[in-house]
Write a protein that binds this DNA or RNA. Structure first.
Lengths: 198, 198
DNA sequence: GATTAAATAAAACATATGTTTCATTAGCAA
DNA sequence: TTGCTAATGAAACATATGTTTTATTTAATC
């Protein structure tokens, strides 16, 4: 028994990846065949096999995806920048969406905010940095949260003190005082900071 | 003359976006029609019109993209983590690719490295942070570069001193000394830092 | 070199999708 | 209401794509 051509398999996978990269959508069988110098039926059989083997996913017209790809990208909303303070995380404020790889940042729903002020500099969040926020209304103690204090959304570290019936919101800046509130609305948990170096 | 239904236009655009979001590829005319409660020919005419108007791009089977989308994502290579120092930026070391939105980080080619050590903490780069590097072999003075010193790739701020026929590589850590070399190979320029907060 | 089996590609086929046609419907104005 | 115009959707059509069949080629083995 002759073994199937591993080189052709690799070539197909590479072609599929690069085509998707270039065009933003999958190639057709014919295009793959032309691309790798083979024929449509051969490509078809290979792709079917690779689909069974889990090397790539194939499900109909122009719909092949390499398993190595990271097609699952989380949708991230970017609210319009506001002059001071952080905007409320509301769907209608979203001006733009981008996608971020789940493998790096996990599953959404996410929002991307620009940090203002320097109340969190010791946590590595400087003025102007992007902060990736997972939208959720609860948080584990010690996490950096987007908390609504009065009408303003702020970034603070979250320390509930149930024994004192209050919540401590801790700015990561030794020159600033902790804030104590009876309750506050959590709008999300900071997941990552994007710091521009250019 | 009756004006075309703006609501249907908006519905089609929304459907196209959400479908692409969900499935990772474009819907067919029929699917759009079903989705927005219209018919295939009507959807076809609307999409043709919207294509002419630049509201979305349409180019054949299962290939509609909202202009508001950000289909252009830069391909980013992630070399396997190495124990100490940074790996050489070579294609064969890439174990994984992800995509990052061009609107946030610009055009590639990019590599994503994990920072090790604390020679750049004053630039906001801490041990374990991800560093997004644009691959290029030159850099403007003052930029944070991936420089090959001997056999090891390191992150340093780049200050060429042509008058002294040397290059100063500056660690952003006041406890560390500047490094002077006659020449060094630049492998890329740091574009952004991803700091995990979780 | 002859034999055999697997892989291949050309062609035929089936299906899904896009596109056009055309009769109908819906809205608008006199 | 009546007549007009534009938009619509059902159906017919055209085309692109996927799938199967079948003969051919290729490579390995004896």
């Amino acid at each position: 028994m002759r073994s199937k051509d591993k080189t052709l398999m690799a070539a197909i996978e590479r072609f599929v990846c690069e085509y998707a990269d270039r065009h933003g959508y999958s190639p057709s069988m014919q295009e793959i065949a032309d691309g790798v110098g083979s024929s449509k039926p051969t490509v078809y059989r290979y792709i079917s096999q690779m689909n069974r083997d889990g090397i790539l996913e194939y499900s109909g017209v122009r719909n092949v995806h390499s398993a190595k790809d990271n097609p699952s990208a989380a949708r991230v909303g970017i609210p319009g920048r506001v002059a001071c303070g952080l905007p409320k995380l509301a769907e209608e404020n979203i001006e733009e969406y981008v996608k971020l790889p789940v493998s790096l940042f996990g599953e959404g729903p996410f929002y991307l905010l620009t940090a203002s002020g320097n109340s969190m500099i010791e946590a590595g969040i400087d003025d102007g940095d992007w902060v990736l926020v997972r939208q959720q209304d609860t948080a584990e103690p010690g996490k950096v949260v987007v908390a609504l204090i009065g009408d303003e959304a702020t970034l603070k570290r979250y320390y509930p003190e149930p024994e004192n019936h209050r919540i401590r919101l801790h700015p990561e800046n030794s020159t600033m005082e902790d804030i104590y509130v009876d309750s506050c609305e959590i709008q999300g948990v900071a997941v990552s900071v994007f710091k521009d170096l250019t």
